[in-house]
Design a protein around this nucleic acid. Structure first.
Length: 905
RNA sequence: GCCCGAGUAGCUCAGUGGUAGAGCGCAUCCUUGGUAAGGCUGAGGUCACGAGUUCAAAUCUCGUCUUGGGCUCCA
């Protein structure tokens, strides 16, 4: 054993040994319980960043922990290797996307191996390889059979910078999720996956995973699905012009409009229908299109104005002023018979509900604002008696003229419904509308179908052929995969590069054998990530995406770990995919991931120069820090101008990133991993500080020195029997054993509850306790050696999930076995409850809630014993002398509380 | 604006009704001319604020403030 800890040497040695012994390769083993530990697969950008390191360190700690507990652990990795950066590189540098991607994968695989992450590399997969994307295509065709894949010519979100279409999620907030460019609307034929068919199940299925997923992720998904219960109500439009073609009628049905003599609205508050003062429709609403020519000039002008306004980029967070105009059309309220004006309004969205709302200003804030602006009548139909009841509270009684009240209440001014509660009215009025055929109960969702067409080269080709005689023809299963050509002309503009590759485009129709054209769009990369971890279970299957029997053993994932940025998109798509695969009969469960852990970002200090108007690297800045390490002043070295310091997400452009490879080179993989896990709870942000990683190294050195100090004595003593030694344990040895078992208990509990930072603190305590054990190894008694042996071996086994290399090395030193911890079938230590308990504990004694004294007692002392001890205590006697004792509360092993009558003085 | 979460030592966090804790960092001193040194001792907290419940509140309840995140005309 070297006297000093040389991280590089040890790490290389064990990485080699693990690879040779195939230590982390697993197969189905019915004798052992399985555990599937999964981290989100990386995009092969070429360099690992600290976010990756954090992600994989968490997963690896868990995988090791479970292995040490005897589980059969599947811990795989692969590459999300389709996507835009490869294509950008092709456009900019003229490289081949496939070569670029393969090079990056090779580099990153080496980086991961240098970190010593315990992957089963025999299961490595990559999305861009035909053997993988063959099954993207396979699923596409299967969904076509199920009616879950369809093509529709519709408005899509188009990013003018990326030259691609985006799903709603990817265009959230009106900007491209990738580059932040304002998204435009374009009309083109697109392939969609019918995720909305599972809207209800995606929502209700949340119940099943609630316990294992972060609440905020589920809230985001719930919001995204956006279920809303209410009713459709039909308002007749007697003066609408209705001359439409069949195809238009078809389109209208799609929008949920029965015909053009009426407007269908969706409302969650049918109980407020007597308060409707207008119908407000979106500018894109068909009734506007079809009556447009008949509208007065002023109306036409306003509609055009709103359309132009809507197409303009809007600042996120900026409130848009409500605007609109009365079209002159009239609608009839089917309940009251009242004739209402039909307005167009910029605040009504064609994409949600039916694109038309009934405006009830007294009970809806947006309608209220609209009515106020245009002087429309405001009629209260739900009594706001709640505010009258709660008088005296700060919530001043508000009059209906001041504010809309959206609370439920008692109906007024609503004919025979008056006097009913909102709940009753909603139920009964919906029923009435159904019976009279002008409405029905309805549930709407905010969730839209998933548009997967991308005008890109570097993705899975959509397996469709267009034939002049046969139309749209799916590629037969036996012809899969439809392979990407070697290369294509990459210009970065216009249509998909694939469209410019004649060998790819021109083909023959699978049905009639006549010349035909291939679909040249490729699939969204989220398709790959929707099911990749099923593939890990059976990665080399050529016939099927996976063998259902094999997958049944490994799935579902027991713990999934990744960034919270995938809370909605990836995690919703993959839940959908699972339900679809269940309906295909491939699997028989509903939710793919039992537990989800979302880690926080890795951030670092950044410096922004105001004079240069750019970020500057740290070595160009001189900082003055106070004794707490906080920056009080920062200036540019070159011209002394002021520099703004911030703590932000690590990125190259901000010069605040650190390269994991550099860190591994300087400090060793074990230290880097320890720091990544120790510095903060996994869900929180992690601030990268060089001083923190120094602490991690010092800790490992302390552990190394401990073993160095004791190893000869321990190896000589060999296996000691506790039974013979029990009586000879010194007070200190007993204390050390207690600390050991307390630590085991604590760490086991921490791991089970998903805490990764606190066990390291506990291990530091244990190593400190070992350092405090002052017996010289040479003269230590057998009993001492036993206690030290137990403490050190427990320490090493519990540290293994965090710092596997050094632990394997120290284990070899202590046991002489070169096989490695796992192959020697070592197990995570189990706490002995009897030892965890202290012999004697301090019991506080309170008088009237104030701490007055303490006594030492056995943890098993009874109530009566404790009470007696308390009353016998000298200090307590003083306090209670001459006073009446009202009550004595004794909580065994916790405290004694005495209540005395206050002295009148 | 709405919905969720958080606020405990310089930092990162434990602590779910019963003595306010840990690790790191920091400070003092000591040791050591051998490659990321070690050791001793110590300081540091109005548990965000206010009220309530209780013998007893960091912990439970209500309100306020601060802060992080998500949603954003969703009818």
């Amino acid at each position: 054993m070297d006297e000093k800890y040389f991280a590089q040497k040890i790490e290389q040695k064990w990485q080699k040994r693990w690879a040779e012994n195939k230590t982390f390769e697993v197969e189905i083993n019915d004798g052992r319980e399985k555990f599937y530990a999964l981290e989100m697969l990386p995009y092969p950008s070429g360099r690992l960043h600290m976010g990756h390191v954090r992600n994989y360190s968490i997963g690896d700690a868990l995988a090791w922990y479970k292995r040490l507990q005897g589980y059969n652990v599947l811990h795989p990795i692969g590459w999300d290797s389709f996507g835009q950066p490869a294509e950008q590189a092709a456009i900019k540098k003229g490289v081949n996307p496939r070569e670029w991607t393969e090079d990056n994968i090779n580099q990153m695989r080496q980086q991961l191996q240098r970190l010593g992450i315990s992957y089963d590399w025999s299961r490595e997969i990559a999305a861009h390889r035909p053997e993988y994307y063959k099954f993207d295509q396979w699923f596409f065709l299967k969904m076509l059979e199920l009616g879950l894949t369809y093509r529709k010519d519709s408005q899509v979100n188009w990013c003018p910078k990326c030259h691609t279409t985006l799903s709603n999620q990817q265009a959230s907030g009106g900007v491209c999720w990738r580059c932040g460019t304002q998204v435009e609307k374009q009309s083109r034929p697109q392939w969609f996956l019918k995720i909305t068919a599972y809207a209800e199940e995606l929502l209700s299925g949340i119940k099943e995973i609630e316990a294992g997923w972060a609440e905020r992720v589920l809230t985001m998904q719930r919001n995204w699905i956006g279920r809303s219960e209410g009713a459709f109500v039909e308002f007749q439009i007697p003066n609408s012009r209705f001359q439409i073609s069949n195809s238009e009628q078809q389109k209208n049905l799609e929008f949920g409009i029965w015909n053009l003599e009426s407007v269908r609205v969706f409302t969650t508050r049918i109980d407020t229908i007597y308060g409707a003062n207008a119908i407000v429709v979106a500018v894109e609403h068909p009734i506007i299109e079809h009556n447009f020519d008949n509208f007065p000039e002023a109306v036409k002008a306003k509609i055009e104005e709103i359309k132009i306004e809507k197409a303009k980029p809007t600042d996120y967070g900026e409130e848009i002023e409500k605007d609109g105009i009365d079209t002159g059309l009239k609608a009839v309220n089917p309940f009251s018979g009242e004739e209402l004006p039909v307005w167009v309004g910029n605040y009504v969205m064609m994409e949600y509900g039916t694109g038309a709302v009934m405006s009830v200003p007294a009970h809806d804030e947006r309608d209220f604002e609209f009515a106020k602006k245009f002087g429309l009548p405001i009629k209260q139909v739900v009594s706001g008696q709640w505010s009258a009841v709660s008088e005296g509270s700060k919530d001043q009684k508000t009059k209906s003229e001041d504010r809309a009240t959206t609370d439920y209440g008692i109906l007024v001014n609503s004919d025979e419904w008056s006097g009913k509660t909102s709940e009753e009215a909603k139920r009964e009025m919906t029923k009435f509308a159904e019976e009279n055929n002008f409405g029905k109960m309805a549930t709407t969702y905010r969730l839209r179908d998933w548009g997967i067409s991308r005008q890109r080269f570097w993705g899975a080709p959509i397996p469709i052929v267009y034939c002049e005689t046969c139309g749209t023809v799916p590629v037969p299963f036996e012809n899969l995969p439809v392979e990407l050509p070697e290369s294509a002309p990459f210009t970065g503009v216009g249509e998909s590069p694939l469209a410019k590759v004649p060998e790819f485009v021109y083909t023959t129709c699978p049905k009639c054998d006549e010349p035909a054209r291939r679909e040249t769009d490729t699939m969204d990369t989220f398709v790959n990530s929707a099911w990749y971890y099923f593939r890990y279970t059976d990665p080399h299957n050529r016939e099927l995406p996976f063998n259902p029997e094999i997958t049944a053993y490994w799935m579902p994932v027991d713990q999934y770990i990744g960034g919270v940025d995938h809370a909605v998109m990836h995690l919703l798509y993959t839940r959908f995919w699972t339900k679809m695969m269940r309906d295909l009969g491939l699997i028989n469960f509903d939710e793919p991931v039992k537990k989800l852990l979302t880690q926080g970002m890795v951030v670092g200090e950044s410096y922004y120069s105001k004079s240069k108007e750019s970020y500057v690297p740290p070595d160009e800045v001189k900082t003055v820090r106070d004794e707490k390490g906080k920056v009080v002043e920062a200036n540019l070295k070159s011209d002394n101008s002021q520099v703004k310091v911030a703590v932000e997400k690590m990125s190259k452009s901000k010069y605040n990133g650190v390269d994991p490879d550099d860190m591994v080179m300087i400090y060793g993989a074990d230290a880097v991993r320890i720091f990544a896990l120790f510095a903060a709870p996994v869900e929180n942000e992690l601030v990268w500080q060089e001083t923190g990683i120094d602490g991690a190294v010092r800790f490992l050195q302390r552990v190394y020195r401990l073993v160095y100090r004791w190893h000869k004595a321990l190896v000589v003593s060999g296996q000691l029997q506790l039974s013979e030694l029990n009586g000879e344990l010194s007070q200190d040895a007993r204390k050390l054993r207690q600390k050991t078992h307390q630590t085991i208990k604590r760490i086991t509990e921490n791991f089970e509850s998903g805490q990764f930072n606190t066990p390291i603190a506990a291990l530091m305590e244990l190593s400190n306790a070992l350092g405090d054990f002052k017996v010289e190894p040479k003269i230590a008694s057998e009993a001492d050696l036993f206690a030290v042996d137990e403490a050190i071996k427990s320490l090493i086994l519990m540290l293994t999930p965090y710092a596997p290399h050094i632990c394997e090395e120290l284990w070899e030193v202590l046991t002489g076995s070169a096989k490695g911890i796992l192959q020697s079938d070592e197990k995570f230590p189990v706490a002995d409850e009897a030892l965890v308990k202290a012999d004697e504990i301090e019991i506080p004694i309170q008088i009237n809630g104030k701490l007055r004294s303490r006594v030492l007692a056995s943890p098993d002392a009874t109530k009566e014993q404790l009470e007696m001890m308390a009353l016998a205590d000298a200090k307590i006697k003083e306090y209670i002398d001459g006073k009446e004792i009202l009550k004595i509360i004794v909580v065994p092993s916790r405290l004694v509380s005495i209540v005395v009558k206050a002295q009148q003085s």
